[in-house]
Structures are given as C-alpha cells and as structure tokens.
Design a protein around this nucleic acid. Structure first.
Lengths: 116, 116
DNA sequence: TAGCGATATATCCACTTGTACATATCGCTG
DNA sequence: CAGCGATATGTACAAGTGGATATATCGCTA
C-alpha cells in the first residue's frame, strides 16, 4: 500500500495592518527588495512581472501609512528618475523577514506532528 | 508629543494545501465548527452570514482532498436532511486550532520587539 | 400521498482586482 | 531646446469572486 499520493504542505503568511488596513506583507517586502536592487520602481515591477501601476499603488499605500516614507521617488534627471528605499524601509524589510523566518521554523517543527 | 495615533497589528494566517490546492484554513475550520454545532450546512452558513453555495463549495473541496471525508451530508429525512462532521474532521479541527494557537503565541511575543 | 426542510446545482449579475493602454510631467543631457 | 527615461495618473477592459435566485431531489411525516 502506498503511504501517500498526496503531499500536504503547511503554509503560513503574516502581515502588518495599520488601523485595519493592509500595510506590509510578503509581496510588498519583495517589491522593496527589488527597488533596492534596481533603484527604480518600473524596473522592480518588471522583474517581478508586476504592472508598474500596481507597484506604484503599493508604494503609495505604504508611504501613506508608515510614520516615515519607505520609498522616495524622483522624476526626471539623468536616468529619467528613480526610487530609493529609505533607512526606515530597509529596517522594516529586515525586521519582517526575521519574524517570517522564526514563524517558518516553528511551522516546520509543527508539521512533523500533523499526521492527518 | 503623542506616542502613536496609529495602531499597528501583526496578523498571521496559516493553512494547509494538498498538491498546491487550498485545503484547510481558518474559514473552513469555522464552518466545520458551526456544522458540528447545528448539524446542518445551511444553518451553519446562515450563522456565519455566508451563502449556502459558498459553504457547500468549501465542503466539496475539503472532502475531495482529504483522505477521508470531513463532512457527510444527507438529503431528506425527518428534518429534511442534515450534515455531520466525521471523526477525521473533528481531529483536523482540533489539530489546526492547536497549531494556530502556538503561532499566535509566538507572534504575540514577537510583536513586542517590532517597534517600527 | 402531499408537504416539509435540507441538500445539490445551474444561471445571472454586481463587485472587486488587476492588466493594458494612453498620456502628462519632470529634470538632466547631448 | 528637443529627446530620453522614469515617475505619476486616468480610463477602459478582462477575469475571478461571491451573492441572489430558481429549481430539482430526497426521505421522513402527518
């Protein structure tokens, strides 16, 4: 008899809300990391196969809810413009990933107990 | 100076997938508990302000992916029919809630460290 | 055997979400 | 000063989600 023909995976996702509004989660963390990498919203969005508009909307919401903006964007200039992730943004990314890692570890341990 | 005029909350959600398909999560756990309470899909859905169709769809998906059905429904009869949560379903609900509680506790501790 | 209440299922429609496309704006640079 | 590249923003359309509604089916019961 086969053990299992189905793989059961535990997933976990955490995010932050401010006044009940989604503020910071895995998708936005990824976006911020890409902006750090490319220095540009549009290139970050491209690399994630995301529309510029959606990326821009995320950033707008983040900046509106954070005490200090996480992304500063500039129009014009030698490269046409660009975007920079602030120190607060970098810190937030780091904190969030650390929390995520801890939770994933816990879930990994628990998954051994779940034999349903 | 005010400390904060914005409340920051950490949210966490975990769920199970089978072969990449959503299988079991908080919403479905709630539904199963209500079915245990009422012995009826439609009454359970009503009490959660959920449409019968959605509830029924959830149950169909759960039963299709579980090794053993979690809900058994009957048509006709003295009360017109009814639904029963199987032992496997009850066990799954218990296990899931236990895991959820552990994760919530961890997140509660971590939330003190997150002063962003 | 007609009726009741719940399961089971299809169809239609409103809402939400995201994508695609178009356009305006800005500031450096050749 | 014209052009480039990226930000900033609107509009219109496609797709998925869920709700409302209607109907069929079933088995006990009066």
């Amino acid at each position: 008899m086969k053990r299992t023909n189905k793989s059961v995976e535990i997933h976990v996702r955490c995010w932050l809300e401010v006044n009940g509004i989604k503020f910071f989660g895995p998708g936005r963390v990824d976006l911020l990391e890409k902006i750090i990498e490319f220095g540009s919203i549009s290139k970050a969005a491209q690399s994630m196969n995301m529309s510029y508009k959606k990326a821009w909307g995320m950033i707008e919401e983040i900046n509106a809810l954070a005490r200090t903006p996480f992304v500063i964007a500039r129009k014009g200039g030698h490269a046409g413009g660009g975007a920079e992730v602030t120190q607060a943004g970098i810190l937030a990314v780091r904190s969030f990933k650390r929390l995520n890692k801890k939770i994933s570890l816990l879930v990994g341990k628990e998954s051994e107990l779940l034999k349903l």
